[in-house]
Nucleic acid binder design. Structure first.
Lengths: 133, 133
DNA sequence: CGGTATCCTTGACGATACTG
DNA sequence: CAGTATCGTCAAGGATACCG
């Protein structure tokens, strides 16, 4: 394997709040339908959830991505974050009314995905079969 | 700006068909709600569309991403691709019945994004205001 | 017209370690 | 418990050029 030496910038952007100023319809959709947002929003719409509960229920998410996604959703006014100053600390997240209006479309999407997951897997096999060989 | 010399692999993966074997619900959702897929699916559900029409109507998409996204949607059985062997060539894409069942959720998502785009922009300003200073 | 090929940058994300 | 900080990887996707 050959390789090249290239220059890389020192700092990455990540999902750092402070970005995404434009806020087009496309950006809103991507924020809301992003890799982890759907799972979080679904949970937070059913009722208040704690950080650790989300970490368990949103399959495969890392602590870091959970934090980042939660912050972004909070920033966009989709989640309300409530801190209880107890020991140990307790933080609850709940969907705002605006976010709750998304519930129907989101469950529609998930339901569809569940119904057709098998069919899609098959379609891929067929496609790959008659193009590869 | 400082920089480091690092080794990079020669070939990228891109959205190259042949990847994504697992096909979980999460993957299906991300495929279908991805950056460009929604716009394409919406157009292709209303009726057959040509490559160049999509290039114009899906705001901001590059020729490359249009091709890649179309191929992936076709592979997953969401689009039917029809080639008319004329001069000049003509290719039409149309949503399959399975994809058409997504229309409701997709327009729901887009409608919501349009309704709340302003509110979200405001929420961001507020959030950034009371956290930054 | 409807694509491919190649090259490059940047941002999404995981791993790991540490903290009030 | 609920995070933050730092580092590294890799895939998404833009730019550009070329093709049947």
């Amino acid at each position: 394997m050959s390789q090249r030496n290239i220059a890389v910038p020192d700092q990455a952007a990540d999902l750092d709040p402070g970005k995404m100023e434009a806020c087009t319809v496309l950006e809103v959709i991507n924020r809301v339908s992003g890799k982890w947002a759907i799972g979080i929003l679904l949970e937070a719409t059913r009722g208040p959830v704690r950080f650790t509960e989300l970490e368990r229920s949103v399959e495969g998410i890392s602590r870091r991505m959970l934090t980042l996604t939660l912050r972004n959703l909070e920033r966009d006014g989709l989640l309300k974050r409530t801190v209880y100053p107890t020991v140990p600390p307790k933080v609850e997240y709940e969907a705002t009314p605006m976010a709750k209006e998304l519930y129907g479309s989101l469950t529609g999407l998930v339901g569809w995905a569940e119904r057709y997951r098998e069919a899609i897997t098959e379609a891929r096999k067929t496609y790959d079969g008659h193009t590869a060989c």
